[in-house]
Simulated assay, not measured.
Amino acid sequence: MSSMEGSAASKTQARAHEIAARLDRLIATENARREARGEDPITHREIAKLTGDRVSPTTVRGLHKAENGRGAPANPQVSTLDAIGEVFGIRNGAEYFTSDAAAKAVDKQLRALQALAEIRGPQGAPGDAGLSLAFRAAQLSPDGYRLVNDLAERLLAHELAARQEPDNSAERDG
């Protein structure tokens, strides 16, 4: 094998591992959302089904493991990456899987959505409470938003201070 062939093979392998890592992040994000709702984790078979069977479970598994069925680095078609991206709500999945800039932007959005999903609702469980607040805030005027934001800052400061106060209830009871 010439040095050029070796270099091309190592680039293909590096790309396959990057695609696998990005797919792993998407799966982990989806599974965190599902766990919060008491649902089963997503499977390679389910991902394939959600592509409308444009991608096989074996292909999804291979991309997740960074290799094809013959042990060589995975080298998927653009249509395959687009189909898998769509499953996770990403338009132009090929760009997400192959462009560092696109992946960085999408991952930032996913972290923001995860933070919203972790906001506790009235019963103390994560769910749609954060999204509900965000949708309401988006409908406020700039003055209304500032008012709600100021109130949230004051409430947070009050709760943080209350958490830091020592519990003197035993001294009062005694």
Results as ranks from 00 to 15, higher is better:
Met4Pro: 00
Glu5Trp: 01
Ala8Tyr: 03
Lys11Ser: 12
Thr12Met: 12
Arg15Asp: 08
Glu18Trp: 04
Glu18Ser: 13
Glu18Gln: 11
Ala20His: 02
Glu30Thr: 14
Asn31Pro: 03
Arg33Gln: 15
Glu39Leu: 14
Thr43Ser: 15
His44Leu: 03
Lys49Ser: 13
Leu50Ile: 01
Leu50Lys: 14
Thr51Lys: 05
Thr58Lys: 06
Arg61Ala: 12
Arg61Tyr: 13
Gly62Tyr: 01
Leu63His: 01
Asn75Met: 06
Pro76Phe: 03
Ser79Arg: 15
Thr80Trp: 02
Thr80His: 06
Ala83Tyr: 01
Gly85Trp: 02
Ile90Cys: 09
Ala94Phe: 01
Glu95Tyr: 00
Thr98Pro: 10
Thr98Asp: 04
Lys104Trp: 03
Asp107Trp: 08
Asp107Ile: 04
Gln109Arg: 14
Gln114Val: 04
Leu116Thr: 04
Ala117Cys: 04
Gly121Pro: 01
Pro122Val: 04
Gly124Phe: 01
Pro126Asp: 09
Gly130Glu: 06
Arg136His: 11
Gln139Pro: 04
Gln139Arg: 14
Tyr145Gly: 06
Val148Gly: 07
Asp150Val: 11
Glu153Asn: 07
Leu155Glu: 12
Leu156Glu: 09
His158Leu: 15
Leu160Glu: 10
Leu160Ala: 13
Glu165Asn: 04
Ser169Asn: 12
Ala170Cys: 02
Ala170Tyr: 14
Glu171Ile: 10
Arg172Asn: 04
Asp173Ser: 12
